[in-house]
Design a protein around this nucleic acid. Structure first.
Lengths: 403, 403
DNA sequence: GCAGTTTGTTTATTCGAGACACAAAGCCAG
DNA sequence: CTGGCTTTGTGTCTCGAATAAACAAACTGC
C-alpha cells in the first residue's frame, strides 16, 4: 500500500502564517512565500494550492509578465476577489456604518453613513446588524464572522463597554453579548467580536496601512472628544490583561491646565482634543458638524491666516508632543501613527510636533528619533473590526472554514 | 529494517517548554508535565528522560511517598543539583557581586559583596568576571552562559548602557561587548548578556518569586537614586523596540514638585526615591550607608514615632500611588511588584498605597483592583541576569547544550 | 541556440507526536 | 489479603507535516 498523499494533506501547519502573509500583502508570489515562511518550495506550493481550494486566494496561471530579473517568472498570488467576507460595523458619537471587508482589508460594500443614534445599545446594534445582513444577502458571499468597533474601552473577557460616554449608553453595557444576540436574530450564524475603535484602527493600520512592518506600533487618535491610544506588538493588539491598556487620555501634559473629570488637571484628554483646539483659539463650538470637523476646518482654513489659530495649534501641538514623549518613554515604540485631530495637527506643522516628541523623550536624541506619521487608511476602524472576525481564519484556515 | 526509535529522538519540540515548566516549578511530576504541555504521557515521558540524559533534571526512582490520592504515585521531577550553572553578575552604585545560579533560580555560590567601584567599566567588569571565573573553577561545573545586570537602560541591539549615571561611566558604554571581551579573556567560552537591573529583577520575580503566574507583570523599584520599571508580558521581558521601554521615572506625580533634570518638575524619579523621602522628612543624607539604607532605616525606626516622618512617608506614598495609577492606565497589568524603597513604603502602609493606586486608576473601582505586593526574591537582579544566560537553553536545550 | 538562473512539482524519506495496549503501583471495600 | 478501581509510566504502531533531492518549466543574456 503506497502512501501517495494528496496535495491537500500537506503544509497544514504553515497554512495560517501563509494566509497572513498574503493578507498583509507580504507574499505576492510562491517564491517569496517560501523564504518568508522558511519552508521548502514544495511546502509553499502545497500551501498555496490548499489556500486556493479553500477559495481564499487565486494563483495567476498567466506568467507574471516583465519580471525584470532572470529565471522563470513566478505566478502571482492574490486574494480571491470572490472569496468570503467579514461583516464590519462601527458605532460612533453621531452615527454608525456597516461594511463587508474581504481579505487584504478590502472594502467590498458599505452602507451609507447613518447619523441617527438611538440611546439603547440593543436598538442601534440591531439596526447595524440588519443593515449588514442586507449587504451580505445582496453580495451573496459567505461570511466568516462579524466585528464591531465602539468608542469605548471594551473589558475582556466580558466584552463590556466601560465608558461609552458619548453614546449615552450605560457604562458596562455587554456589547459583545448584544452584538451576538443581534447576529443570531438576523439569522447570521457567525461569531461576533467587539473592540475599541482606536485599537481596531491601529490593528488595521498595522496590517494594511501606515503601520506595516512596525514591531512596536503606537497609535494615538482623537475622536470628537477625548484621546485614545493603542499598541500593536509583533502584529498582535496589546490591550493589557483586561483589555483596558493604552488609556492614555490622562497623562498630564500641562500642570496648570484645564480640570479633567478624572480629578487631575491638564490631561491629554482635555488638552489635545478638538474642543481644546477650538477653545484655545477662542472659538465657540458651533451647531454645524462634529467637533472634529469644526476643528479640522479651522486648521485647514485659518491656520495660515489667523495668528490666534496658529498660536492655539502650536500650543496644542506642544502638549501633544509632551504626551507622546511620555508614552515613548514608557512604551519605546518604533513607530507612531496619529489619527483624528492629531493627524491634522501633524500635517499643519510636522517639524514642530516631531521636534517636541524628540525633545521631551528621554532617548530622543541619543538613540534615533521615532517616526511620527499620519494614518493612511480610510475607514480604519471598520477594517480593524473585520480583522477581529478574520483572525480565527488567519490562525487556522482549515479549522475556521467549513471546507 | 525496523524503525525502532530510541527514546531520545522523540519529544524534541516539547523539550524547551518542558524544561521551562520544571525551571519555574510548575511541573513537579511527569503527570502534570503531560497536562501542562498538552501532549500524551508517552511524549512527556520521553521528554523527561531526555532532559535527564542532558543532565538538567533528575527523576526520583523511589515512588513519591504519601500522595494522598488514588492511583500509582508519580515520580518526582527535580532540577539536577549537580547540573550546569549560569554565571550571574551585578554592578550597582556602590559595589558589585558575582554568583553561580542553577536552573530554578537557585543560587549555588556567591562572591562576597564588593564595595569598591572603579570608574572604568572595563576594569570593574573585568574584576567581576575574574571573581566569577574563580567561583566556576571552584565548583567544577559546566557553565551555560553569563548575565550582567547594570543600573542603566541597556539599548538593544547594541548592548550599550545609556544612562549609567551613578557609576560615573560614560553614557553609551558598550557593556555587552566589554562583558564578552572580559569573559573571553578569563577563558570562559560562553556568551554574555546584559540587561537593566530592574528589568532582570522583574524577570526573576516572574519566574521564581512574587510574579509567578502573572500574565502582565509590572515591576517598579528604586535603587539609591531614581526609579526603574519593568514589564513582563506572557513570561517574556518587554523592553520595547530598542530596550528602552518602562523608563517610568518621568511621569508627573506632583505638578508643583521638585525640578527634575529632564526639564519638567515633580517627576516620579525625584518625588519617590530615597532622597525624596529623606528630604520630605527634613533629614539630610548622612555619610553612613547608602541613601536606600538610610531611607529604609528611617521608615523602620521612626515611622511610628515621628509625625514628620509619617507625614513624609504618606506624601511620598501618595505620589507613588499616582504614578502607579498612571502606569496602570497605560499598561493594564494584572499584578504590580515593588522593590527598593517602594517595597518599604508599601510595608509601612499597604492600605494607603493600594487605595491611592485604585483611586487614581481609571478602572480601579469598576473592574477590580490590581494586586500590589512586594518582591520576594533575594538577589533578584542576579537571578534575572542568570535567566538571560539560561534563556537559550530554555528555548532549545538540545541546540544550546553540547550533549 | 545554449548556458545560467529562478520557479514550480513530484517522489521518497525523515522525524516528532498521537493512539493504543499493557504494565506498574498505589487506594479501598469486602 | 484479594480483587476492583484509579492513576502513572512505557513500548509499539501509525500518522502526518515537512524536508531533500531530482526533475521540469520558463525566462535572460550572450
Amino acid at each position: 500500500m503506497t502512501h501517495t498523499r494528496t496535495r491537500l494533506e500537506r503544509g497544514r501547519n504553515a497554512l495560517g502564517p501563509a494566509l497572513e502573509l498574503v493578507h498583509t500583502g507580504r507574499a505576492p508570489t510562491r517564491a517569496v512565500l517560501t523564504t518568508a515562511l522558511g519552508v521548502t518550495r514544495a511546502t509553499a506550493g502545497a500551501v498555496a494550492s490548499e489556500l486556493q481550494t479553500l477559495g481564499l486566494i487565486t494563483v495567476d496561471s498567466r506568467p507574471g509578465g516583465a519580471t525584470g530579473s532572470h529565471g522563470r517568472p513566478s505566478h502571482r498570488l492574490s486574494i480571491d476577489p470572490g472569496g468570503p467576507v467579514a461583516l464590519a460595523a462601527q458605532v460612533h458619537a453621531d452615527g454608525y456604518r456597516a461594511a463587508l471587508v474581504g481579505l487584504g482589508g478590502q472594502l467590498h460594500a458599505t452602507t451609507p453613513a447613518c447619523t441617527t443614534v438611538p440611546a439603547d445599545p440593543r436598538q442601534i446594534i440591531g439596526q447595524i446588524v440588519a443593515a449588514g445582513a442586507d449587504l451580505l444577502r445582496a453580495s451573496g458571499r459567505p461570511c466568516v464572522g462579524a466585528g464591531l468597533a465602539v468608542p469605548s474601552a471594551v473589558a475582556e473577557p466580558e466584552g463590556t463597554a466601560l465608558n461609552p460616554l458619548h453614546l449615552a449608553w450605560r457604562a458596562g453595557a455587554p456589547v459583545r453579548e448584544i452584538f451576538n444576540d443581534c447576529l443570531a436574530e438576523a439569522g447570521l450564524a457567525v461569531p461576533g467580536y467587539c473592540g475599541n475603535d482606536v485599537n481596531l484602527a491601529a490593528l488595521a493600520e498595522h496590517r494594511h496601512g501606515a503601520g506595516r512592518g512596525a514591531a512596536h506600533l503606537l497609535c494615538v487618535a482623537t475622536g470628537h472628544r477625548g484621546v485614545g491610544g493603542a499598541l500593536v506588538l509583533d502584529g498582535r493588539l496589546h490591550s493589557g490583561s483586561a483589555g483596558l491598556a493604552l488609556e492614555v487620555g490622562h497623562l498630564t501634559v500641562d500642570p496648570a491646565g484645564r480640570p479633567c473629570h478624572c480629578g487631575s488637571r491638564g490631561c491629554l484628554d482635555v488638552e489635545t482634543d478638538p474642543l481644546a483646539l477650538l477653545d484655545a483659539a477662542g472659538r465657540q463650538p458651533g451647531p454645524e458638524g462634529s467637533l472634529l470637523d469644526q476643528a479640522r476646518d479651522l486648521l485647514a482654513t485659518e491656520y495660515g491666516s489667523d495668528p490666534a489659530v496658529r498660536a492655539a495649534a502650536h500650543a496644542v501641538t506642544d502638549r501633544l508632543g509632551l504626551g507622546l514623549a511620555g508614552l515613548v518613554n514608557i512604551l519605546n515604540p518604533d513607530r507612531i501613527i496619529l489619527g483624528g485631530l492629531h493627524r491634522w495637527l501633524l500635517a499643519a506643522d510636522p517639524d514642530r510636533l516631531r521636534g517636541a516628541v524628540q525633545a521631551r523623550s528621554l532617548w530622543g536624541r541619543r538613540s534615533g528619533t521615532v517616526p511620527v506619521t499620519a494614518c493612511t487608511l480610510d475607514y480604519n476602524s471598520l477594517v480593524g473590526a473585520a480583522e477581529l472576525a478574520w483572525q480565527p481564519v488567519l490562525d487556522d484556515p482549515l479549522a475556521a472554514l467549513p471546507g
